[in-house]
Design a protein around this nucleic acid. Sequence first.
DNA 1: CTGGGTGGCT
DNA 2: AGCCACC
Length: 565
Amino acid sequence: MDSIEFDAIIRHPRTIIHIDVDCFYAQVEMLKHPELQGKPLGVQQKNIVVTSNYLAREYGIKKCMSVQEALQLCPEIALVNGEDLTHYRHYSAKILKILHRFTPLVERLGFDDNFLDITSIVQKYMNSGNDSELNISINMEDENPVGKVFGPFEEECPCGCHARLIIASKIAVEIREQIYKDLHITCSAGIGHNKLLAKLVGSLHKPNQQTLIFPCSAAMLLSTIESVSKIPGVGQKTTQLLISNNIKTVDDLRKTPLEALEKKIGIDLARKLKDNAEGIDETVVKPTGKRQSIGLEDGFKSVSLIAEVESRLGALLRRLTELAMEDGRIPVAMRLTVRKHDFNKSASGKRETRQCALPKYLLPSSKSGVYDHAKMLTLAMKLFHRTVDVSKPFHLTLLGVAFTKFEERSSGKNSITSFLRKQVAVQSVLDISSEEGVSDINLGSPMSVNQDSNDGSAMSTTSSPISKSIGTNNQTVDDDVLNEIEPLPKKTRLEVWLSGRRESPSNEMADLRLSPSSPMQLSPKIDAAVLKSLPIDIQREVTRSWPTTSKPKSNNILKYFIANK
DNA sequence: CTGGGTGGCT
DNA sequence: AGCCACC
């Protein structure tokens, strides 16, 4: 037995707390809507109730249940739209700040799931009865843990972990109390000597509770969870792989010899799972740094028109650049995500992504402080054309855009890189201005193409930055990427009209929505004229009925304007 | 009739 | 770039 294995089995040197915010989205929504206090509440994204408060759960509402199902179980449930994650992100950041008061060793999984390695904090309390930096008093006299304890209380482990875990349970109370005091948000906690145990044990008693596990109960806890799918890291695919090998429970996993398992599922996975089955997990708490990507997605029933793709991407990009500004770092790559409608499966198809560099001149200059949204959209559309063959009909069910790499800034805003970047930015502004005329390119007005009047007539007399830059084929020094873009077809009236609509996130086509009870907002006359103005291939595309699971659609352009949510 | 994010591995 | 996983 080597020393690592030795450590894992009879020494338990680390002390880990897992903090899980109770039904996070639902709690945030209850804070936003105090009038819903005491009522069952669900958070809805598209047709899904992604989470609910505990009152709603009493009716049997589960995570990611369809709205219809949820309403059947609990007709009086209040449903709140949770597609915009801004508030959740906000609270998540506040929670992280509180956790950082205790230790920088915080690993986040999602917005509401955190591991803290408090080994050194516990050590300080063990040594001196307090932590000089962490100004929190802990009752060292009481030898009993706070909160629940999983498993029988057996004799102390010779490595001394019992005392450490008991102190940790008191620190967990402090953490939860501080989060509640500052934010009025409740959390549950799990305390153990590794991440696996801390996470699993914390889920035993919720909400607003905490549970400790001593190492001697580890194997028992793992037996208790039964299904292998409960092991963190074992998702749908791995579960199916294991089940196809007749392994359903953790005990099945335990009974399978390592050598046999390695042959079935691969050496790495086999070793990890065999360890986990015994409650062994040596993975470290990896402090979560800055996000590696910042992205937004929008899902929908179907998008088949380039104009709508452009419109939706424009909306996503505007919000994305806001997020990037909040983040403060400078993105240097852009990724586009699409999900194509899959006719073979009733469920959603797989995603495809395309990435490209984000040229420096697209970044906010220190002068204007804004992104050039028009060129960003042009770049995103270039990625789109690289992903989707628009010469054939396409039916997308999701569009996403993300910034995926960020400029390293060695120091603050006076660093040499920052200085150079400003010079470049200013230079590129000058270049554009001198070639196009300052009045034509409106750097200070993001996405003017989409923020112009709702009345499409304005668009016919004012050229957008996009059409301008294409029409003049401008060759600024920094156009090394954009000048490769094949010229977009001149905008049709339909496209102009569509892209000129004011949008709201996830509701871009609201103006186009037709309901049986409301009069049509698009007159048949305009309809025909718009249709005629389309290129012939687009006409065919727009008027073609595409196969669906339901009855064939009529050859009427209006159906493409009917709400797709 | 399945959400909107993230990160890691290959 | 895709797959898988997590919340």
